[in-house]
Computed example of a mutant assay.
Amino acid sequence: MTTLYDVQQLLKKFGIYVYVGKRLWDIEVMALELDHLHDAHVVSDREFTSAKLVLTREHRIEEKNLKSKNETGGL
Rank of each mutant, 00 (worst) to 15 (best):
L34M: 06
R60E: 09
D26W: 01
L32G: 05
K64N: 10
R57A: 09
L11R: 01
D6K: 12
A51N: 00
L75S: 13
L11C: 11
S68R: 12
E62I: 03
N70A: 14
K52D: 00
L4C: 09
E63T: 13
G15A: 14
V18A: 04
K22C: 10
D35P: 00
H41T: 12
G15I: 01
V7I: 11
D6H: 13
L37N: 04
G21S: 12
E33G: 03
H41D: 15
R60G: 05
L10A: 00
S44E: 04
T72H: 15
R23G: 03
L37I: 14
V18G: 09
Y17N: 14
R57I: 06
E47S: 12
Y5S: 11
D26T: 09
E47Y: 02
L10P: 00
G73Y: 08
T3C: 07
A40I: 14
G74M: 04
K64I: 05
E33M: 09
R60Y: 15
V42W: 05
D45P: 08
D39K: 12
Q9Y: 09
L32K: 10
V42H: 07
E33Q: 09
R23T: 14
R46L: 05
A51M: 01
W25R: 13
G21A: 08
E63Y: 09
K12F: 03
S68K: 13
H38D: 15
Q9M: 10
